[in-house]
């Protein structure tokens, strides 16, 4: 049984579907990249998984259970964490409050201590308002917030979108380290090459469906994938 199983997923924000039959799986312990051109439906897929897409049809199973009818807060309670693209922290709340606000955490104080140890930059400024943090610090807080409830799956929507080029490599290292927290990762990313480099497998979306899929190393060395979807920006 896959941790996440998606079959023939369709949907969007209104009458027009953006997802046109996406099928993918994610196994426990994996990091999987979902890449694709602008408008391919990557972020829409992330929203569909966490319950923020208004119109969705198809199969969406998490740990063998259908979750399509569940609201976002119950999907989170089932074990799905989410880091949105840009607005990923509560700006008027302090760092500590951003962590405290997460619902359903058994031993909140101990868990917060673990995460502040794991993200020392946050521990130093624990009373600072999240709105005053730099892009890199915000992202660390977003990761810590999503990890608070010890999810089994983290969905990351363009985690490097709001970062300076200097911070991008750090962000991918952070993603690579996530399975150490017992988390599997689905990362939707524009910087496909760098993301695949830290992933086990990858899917490339085009026009709202899967155009290519396979082991990350195979996709990285595939000429068609490189010329059509991944670009020639290795090392950037």
């Amino acid at each position: 049984m896959s941790l996440l199983e998606i079959a023939d997923l369709r949907g969007g924000y209104g009458e027009v579907d953006i997802l046109n039959g996406v099928s993918l799986t994610l196994e426990a312990g994996e990091i999987v990249t979902v890449a694709g051109t602008n408008g391919a439906g990557k972020s829409t897929l992330a929203k569909a998984i966490v319950g923020l897409l208004p119109v969705v049809r198809g199969v969406l199973n998490f740990e063998g259970q259908g979750i399509l009818g569940l609201p976002p807060e119950l999907r989170m309670a089932r074990g799905i964490g989410y880091v949105p693209q840009v607005a990923n922290v509560f700006p008027s709340l302090s760092i500590v409050e951003n962590l405290q606000v997460v619902g359903g955490v058994a031993n909140q104080k101990a868990r917060m201590g673990e995460l502040l140890d794991a993200f020392p930059a946050l521990a130093q400024r624990r009373r600072a308002r999240a709105g005053s943090l730099s892009g890199g610090e915000r992202q660390q807080l977003a990761f810590a917030r999503a990890l608070m409830a010890s999810p089994r799956l983290m969905v990351l929507d363009e985690p490097t979108a709001a970062l300076s080029p200097k911070m991008v490599a750090d962000a991918f290292e952070r993603i690579r380290a996530l399975p150490r927290f017992g988390v599997s990762v689905l990362v939707v990313e524009q910087r496909a090459r760098q993301s695949l480099a830290v992933s086990d497998r990858g899917y490339i979306l085009d026009g709202g469906k899967v155009a290519m899929s396979g082991a990350a190393s195979a996709l990285l060395s595939d000429d068609r994938a490189a010329s059509l979807y991944l670009g020639r920006h290795a090392g950037r």
């Binding site: 609201p71 976002p72 989410y82 922290v89 509560f90 700006p91 008027s92 606000v101």
Partner: peptide, 16 residues
Amino acid sequence: RAVADDRDLARVSGVR
């Protein structure tokens, strides 16, 4: 205060 900041982010953080 979290919902006032960002309703969707609050929901995916488990706020009912």
